[in-house]
Every structure is written in structure tokens, then in C-alpha cells.
Amino acid sequence: METQRQAARERVIFNNVSKTYHGDHGSVKVVEDVSFKLAEGEFVSLIGPSGCGKTTMLQMLAGFVTQDTGQITLDGGPIKGPGSDRGVIFQEYGVFPWLTVEKNIDFGLSLRCNKHLDSKRKELVAHYLKLMHLNGFEKAYPKHLSGGMRQRLALARAYAVNPNILLMDEPFGALDAQTRLALQLQLMEVLTEERKTVLLITHSVEEAIFLSNRILIISARPSKILRVVDVPFPYPRTPELTATPEFQRLRLELEEVSMQQYAKQQELAAETQ
């Protein structure tokens, strides 16, 4: 597993990255000296307490936020703002309510920067409609969709412009447990068909183990990488995996670490108030 990953191409490199926010109530260091790498096709999760700076890390990679010090390299070059090579999935879905399902998927394809996909536009929309199990809802507006369907729509929209990296910020956080599991399975299915490099932020240790090759446990603020965990289970994974003793052992172990950080972050939050 280890040698395999080293052989794969490195897509993303974080090298001693730090970030401090300056607000009205003083400065807060949110990310400190973070270094990690994402290899081609790898699925990496970040677990950490809320408010610890995981989202900032993802947003730096997405190009919404710039680091203060250190380097972030994407395919060998620096990051110059957001771009369609990195698909971003948010917890709040962000599907456009004024567009039908079909038009939402087509949104990215309608932009000038994705003109090279113009000839395949119709096929791509139809393909992702089907892949995300949204067929039959082409002409429906998002108001008629459930939360899970909205998130699938957001995924279809991100996939349509063919990014090779997916950045997901607690994508299933707002969904009920059943829908969540369904979407996790589906994400895995889709990734088997069209492999992407994924960076996932999640609160759920179980979700992280179930989906990832590797888990980075992030400390309370400022974000540091506390532990790197290689997930030993082979793909494709099925829900039965979560019932195995190996899975449960790993889950308990990681939950303990993550709970400690959660408590620390609570103390921090109490101090600042």
C-alpha cells in the first residue's frame, strides 16, 4: 500500500502552510505548519473539531483563501484562485434554485472556461443525470428535491466539468443517517467508475474510515496534523465492513483521539468568548 502510493503521482503538496485571520477581536492562528501530500486517485479525510481550521485548509486548496506562509503546490505549480480543475462540494449544497436539475448540471459547462467540453455538453449532462440517479427529474426545480438529491445534484454539477480533484466540506453533514449512508455508498460507486483525488472534511470518524485511504487527524486550533492513519481495508467497501471488529477497533481508537481534540477546542472557544 505504502509503496504503491509513493509510486503514484503527487497532485497536491502542502509544505509548512500557516494561516492567521485578523479580525476585530485580534488575530487567530487557524492553521500552523501543515504539511501533507495528496497522490493521484487518493481519498484523504480530515477529521477535527469544528472551528479548528480544516475548512481553511480546504479553501486554500480551492483557491478561496491564500496562505500566509509555506507553499501549496497543485500539479507542480502554485494555486492562482479557484478553477474548474478542482470541484468543491459544500455542506449547504449550493444548488441554484432558479435552475432546473438539468440546467444546474449544465451550469459549469455553460461557462466560457469550459468551452472545450462544448461538443459533449448534452451527453455530459445526460451522463451525470444518470450516474447520480437523477433521471426523471431533469425539468424539476431544486425545491422539489430532498436533501440527499440536492447533494447528488451538487455532485453531478461538480463532476460535469471533469475536475480531477474533489474537495468536499462536510458534504453529508446536513443529511439524516440513512440518506448519508446511501450517499456514501453512491459516492464510492461513482469514484470506482470515475476515479478522482478526494479531500474530504468530516466530523464522522466512521465516515472517514469507511471512505478513505488515509485519514489526517487535525488538532484543536491552530490546526496541526496530529496523526496520519492509513486505512487498511481494500476497496470496494460495503456496509458490512463497518460491523467487523477491525473496523470497530480503528473507529474507537480514532474517536478517542478526536474527542480529546474536541474537548480542547471547546476550552478554546470558551476562552475567546
Binding site: P82, S84, G94
Partner: peptide, 29 residues
């Protein structure tokens, strides 16, 4: 206008003019 719409469209590669035409106008309607 929810900032997430702007972010999503930027992540998909929208230019400022495209954001205005395709997000601001319909969202403000």
C-alpha cells in the same frame, strides 16, 4: 444573495461577468 452561490460558480470557473449574469441577476430577480 447567499455567498455560497458565488463560491460554487467561482469553483466551476465563472468569470466576474458570468457571475453577474448567471448568479446575481436571477438571484436578485
Amino acid at each position: 444573495i447567499p455567498p455560497i452561490y458565488i463560491r460554487v460558480s467561482k469553483a466551476l470557473g465563472a468569470s466576474d461577468f458570468e457571475i453577474f449574469k448567471k448568479i446575481v441577476v436571477p438571484a436578485a430577480l
